[in-house]
Design a protein around this nucleic acid. Structure first.
Lengths: 181, 181
DNA sequence: AGCTTCATGTAAACTGTTACATGATTCC
DNA sequence: GGAATCATGTAACAGTTTACATGAAGCT
């Protein structure tokens, strides 16, 4: 159900169409909650039924019509209720770890190649987040309220990616040394 | 489908019953792949149908009968095939981040309380992993092969939890300072 | 002529969670 | 007498992924 709440937060920041929301989930919101356009359209439908959002049909020139969604009073209340509710961290599920743990039942070189590939992917994501940090929060000492919250989430993303890069480096070094001896 | 492969790795290390596997997913394997007993029984059934594992019925005294599963040749081959296959990192989905990003639409104190609770949970997990590290890998410099791979996965778990603890500390300090000003 | 962007959806397959269900033994 | 452990499953529901589906405008 969390996708609904991620959408509520995003629509609370700015009203928008399903398509626009899907774009946001490819970018800014994507670094803490990923979702495809199919999921978003389905969730919006449910949220309209629940009365959490209202949809205004907007006709556009030279573009297809779009429905602009905004959060209703009941949606605002529901978001506040959910924010106060505790939720445990999700179950750990790391496919790369399964492959490393099982490396001796396959070709270690191929697992190593996969770890190197992940190292690159995580370093790229970290670079993207750091670019956003530099662009949007140049003076991070005097942040307050909503911009502070946005910064803190971004900082978590950078920490997570950095931690993955460090771990991949440790794994690569250890497997290379083990293969060479 | 990854659960099947996590089970193959675990059964490759040692044959066992569904119940025993569920215990392992509560402990050692649990720190990189979580699964409930329901999922495990369902997967084992599928894996028998696929011919990846075979089940031997074992009668026990003063205990219910159990089925001991072991990996077949076809399962061994399938695991090796999967290990060589690339797989992208999973979609990021961090519920706590959604709550922090949306904090200004609810009671910040309650979100802060939730961050503090998560800080404790992650620190506890980290302590559990570090205890396993001290117990099972006292001399981590001379590890090789399977024990090395096990150590590297454990090290990833410690890094992840440490990174979450650090992030929670950053968030707590920032939100406290912002509330106090 | 073909690719990208805008714009919205449906449907099937797969994966994961929660609740229900049973029954014996062992420990306190 | 009651809780925990051993041992195995089914069923309903919720959520996610992948594939299919349509159609116009603008750019190269």
């Amino acid at each position: 159900m969390s996708l609904e709440y991620a959408i509520l937060v995003s629509l609370q920041e700015r009203a928008g169409s399903g398509y626009e929301l899907a774009r946001r989930f490819d970018k800014s919101i994507g670094y803490f909650w990923g979702a495809s356009h199919q999921q978003i359209y389905r969730s919006l439908k449910r949220m309209v039924e629940l009365g959490w959002v209202s949809a205004d049909e907007v006709a556009q020139e030279k573009r297809p019509d779009k429905k602009v969604y905004r959060v209703s009073d009941s949606g605002t209340a529901e978001l506040a209720r959910w924010l106060a509710e505790p939720a445990d961290p999700p179950t750990v599920r790391n496919e790369l770890s399964v492959k490393i743990r099982g490396a001796s039942y396959g070709e270690i070189e191929q697992v190593l190649a996969e770890v190197r590939r992940h190292r690159t992917l995580h370093a790229e994501r970290r670079a993207v987040y750091q670019a956003i940090e530099q662009r949007d929060f140049p003076d991070r000492t005097r942040l307050s309220g909503q911009p502070l919250h946005q910064f803190l989430v971004l900082s978590g993303g950078i920490r997570t990616e950095q931690s993955m890069v460090d771990w991949c480096d440790e794994v690569i070094a250890a497997l290379e040394a083990d293969a060479g001896s």
